[in-house]
Design a protein around this nucleic acid. Structure first.
Lengths: 244, 244
DNA sequence: GTAATAGTGTCTTTAAGACATTATGGA
DNA sequence: TCCATAATGTCTTAAAGACACTATTAC
């Protein structure tokens, strides 16, 4: 290939969709923009790619800036790169987008970079209701792609454990699936499926005693990364009620 | 997020792994580099992202330059973006990599941009044998990721039809799977699986008469894009011989 | 005829889904 | 006691894999 020495006037940014499950709902971290372009709208945390910086590092830096806590243990992966020439009205930019899958609830810190950062239920953001925030740039598309990535990866990887605080119960894990997929799963069959997958989860020996019901056994994430055979999503629109 | 007005001295390129099946083997288009860096090594076709150009368009332009033929009907999709600060010794660059899934055999045209372009069997390139070409930049990693993308997508999409010249037989389609996966599939079961997936293929009404054996019915790609349930790959190392 | 490939029938095994049953705690 | 959740058992159904058998051509 030909690599010319021409340097187009082009900024490379990194944007991160931090996904987490709060109160049974899949949520994304957004910060309100105080400056143009898109002042007053909400945006994914991000930043400019440094001259000698790998994009993975830039994504983690942006996450660290936005949350104010350590991001080392989090699962952060590249999503895709968005290059529409019109995506940034203030000048040409391409965005390398990332997804982070995060357990528990890192309370967003208010900083110069992340004033007014908060979690939004993904459903509220994407369904475009009256109280839905307007998103800056093409961040609504990025978020939609990030959510689809999460939904797909729950099927054939052990990614759900990245959303759960350890130690967790099988019920906790099931509620992660239900929040991300927006569907209800059969508790008994789900338990059997998880336990029959080698090294999906590893028992800690303890047991939870929260509220009514039989105390559940506690688990940590196991060593497995792939799910074979996968856990298949209910088809879209399938709310658990059999059609036949 | 903060978008500074600083413009790092950074080139954005597009590189495309054109994958096709020739003589029963999965092949990739490479061109020999005549200039430094990496003069004498082989590289994926690519180019610099234009100032007002979408990366998808840049990828198709690079393909068009490298093959000299129309690329409109081809399946071209973004793979991922490679940002290692050391990936280009001549200066900072990030590469938005693409994969193209192409039927038949576009004979590489020799041009200024694509002198000495030819198809290489992917297996030969990645297995690093004695006659394997050395690849420029991080293109070996890009190629490996592209091949893995192709292998995975054959499982749960109808992508295999993108590799087959229409009209094709079920046997042609099976040989695509076998070439990409490097495995042998059971002809009878494969036929039943393909025909039982609605709109995977659509019969043309004709039939092929090539060589010995019962003439096979001819098909075109159907309207389906997803495969549900998927066609699962034999596990790596499974050459079709049962272990039990 | 033989060789080779296409396509179908059928049996076994795996695993998902539906649903019942038992277990164990809290109010 | 009743209620809620956890975990397991069992039956049905879907579908993959193994394999036999038929079909149709080239030689």
């Amino acid at each position: 290939m030909t690599r010319s020495t021409r340097r187009p006037d082009l900024t490379v940014t990194v944007d991160v969709a931090l996904l987490t499950v709060r109160h049974g709902r899949l949520c994304v971290l957004l910060s309100e923009r105080s400056a143009d372009p898109f002042a007053g709208t909400w945006a994914l945390p991000g930043g400019t790619l440094g001259a000698d910086e790998d994009a993975d590092d830039a994504a983690r830096s942006a996450l660290s800036d936005a949350t104010g806590i350590g991001v080392e243990p989090w699962h952060v992966e590249q999503l895709r790169t968005y290059t529409d020439p019109g995506r940034d009205p203030s000048g040409r930019s391409v965005s390398i987008a990332y997804v982070a899958f995060v357990p528990n609830v890192p309370a967003p810190r208010t900083t110069a970079d992340a004033a007014g950062a908060r979690f939004w239920p993904v459903e509220d953001v994407l369904d475009g209701g009256d109280d839905a925030p307007a998103l800056a740039f093409d961040h609504e598309q990025i978020l939609a792609d990030a959510v689809e990535r999460a939904r797909a990866k729950l099927e054939y990887t052990t990614l759900a454990t990245a959303f759960a605080d350890e130690p967790f119960t099988i019920g906790d894990l099931r509620r992660v699936y239900e929040a991300v997929w927006g569907a209800t799963l059969h508790p008994g069959n789900f338990t059997r499926k998880v336990l029959s997958t080698p090294d999906f989860v590893a028992p800690t020996g303890g047991h939870a005693s929260r509220g009514p019901g039989r105390p559940a056994l506690l688990y940590r994430a196991g060593d497995a990364t792939a799910l074979n055979p996968p856990i298949t999503r209910p088809s879209p629109g399938d709310d658990g009620i059999p059609t036949s």
